[in-house]
């Protein structure tokens, strides 16, 4: 198949970006979207041009490092997928495809399609953990946890930290990402002790990093590769209000 690409090129975080047009012919529909970009880069290297910078690592949908805006939508037109799991067979022969970085107010473009998502790490540093140090853990079975609670916690914990939810949101809100961790740890008895402190610290960090507010459009859930539910956001709001009522802020 043949496609025309319009790819966002930006030299560094301080420069202005623009679209460049590239044509690729004889692509195999079985190749992944990122492998198609590999082919483009190989071509650019041969033409003495600078290849397109983009991030990826595991290429099996679990590490969260890839992520592109394809035709205006994070990870393309399929719901619940990472960019590495998009394949060319999902496009038509002759298509023109617009490729941009993940866009969000708190994400800076580093170069071309690479973005800085370290603000997400800083939210985690504020409280996305249980304060337990190595060696101090009691026997794992000393704290029974209901099967359903464990499964609910897993569903929240499955977040891969890719930033799709943030890039999809018209407000660039990190609510789904932040709430998934808050919910996981609030669901488990191990997380109970720091429950109020955690939600307040993480929500404050989210605001300090410049992420927008959640206005409940639920677009994040539609696109999340791990299908993290917006009920996590409801839980976060509950936990936050509860902490305020208990005078923990």
């Amino acid at each position: 198949m043949n496609v025309t690409l319009k790819v966002w090129r930006q030299k560094d975080s301080k420069s202005k970006g623009h679209f460049e047009t590239y044509k690729l012919n004889d692509l195999n529909p079985d190749m992944s979207f990122l492998e198609m970009l590999d082919v483009l880069n190989e071509k650019l290297i041969h033409e003495d041009k600078i290849p397109v910078e983009f991030d990826s690592d595991c290429r099996e949908g679990i590490c969260g490092q890839c992520g592109l805006t394809i035709n205006g939508r994070p990870n393309g037109h399929h719901h619940h997928t990472t960019t590495c799991q998009m394949h060319m067979r999902h496009f038509e022969d002759g298509d023109t495809i617009l490729v941009e970085p993940l866009r969000a107010s708190a994400f800076t473009v580093i170069k071309d399609l690479k973005v800085d998502r370290s603000a997400m790490d800083r939210i985690m540093q504020a409280g996305g953990f249980i304060s337990v140090h190595t060696g101090s853990a009691p026997d794992a079975n000393s704290l029974p946890i209901g099967k359903m609670d464990a499964e609910d916690a897993f569903d929240s914990a499955a977040c891969i930290g890719c930033g799709t939810c943030i890039a999809t949101c018209k407000n660039s809100s990190a609510a789904l990402f932040t709430s998934a961790k808050i919910t996981q740890l609030a669901t488990l008895p191990q997380g109970e002790i720091e429950r109020e402190k955690r939600v307040v610290a993480m929500v404050d960090a989210m605001d300090a990093e410049g992420f927008g507010s959640c206005t409940n459009t639920e677009a994040c859930e539609m696109e999340c590769p791990q299908e993290i539910s917006v009920t996590n956001i409801a839980r976060m709001n509950f936990e936050y209000n509860r902490a305020l009522l208990l005078g923990k802020k």
Partner: peptide, 21 residues
């Protein structure tokens, strides 16, 4: 010890209905 440590961190391992691992 590794399992104890992970559970204390909140790692959601699979459980039985009675709540044990």
């Amino acid at each position: 010890n590794v399992i104890d440590q992970a559970v204390a961190q909140g790692v959601p391992f699979a459980r039985e209905y009675g709540g044990v691992l």
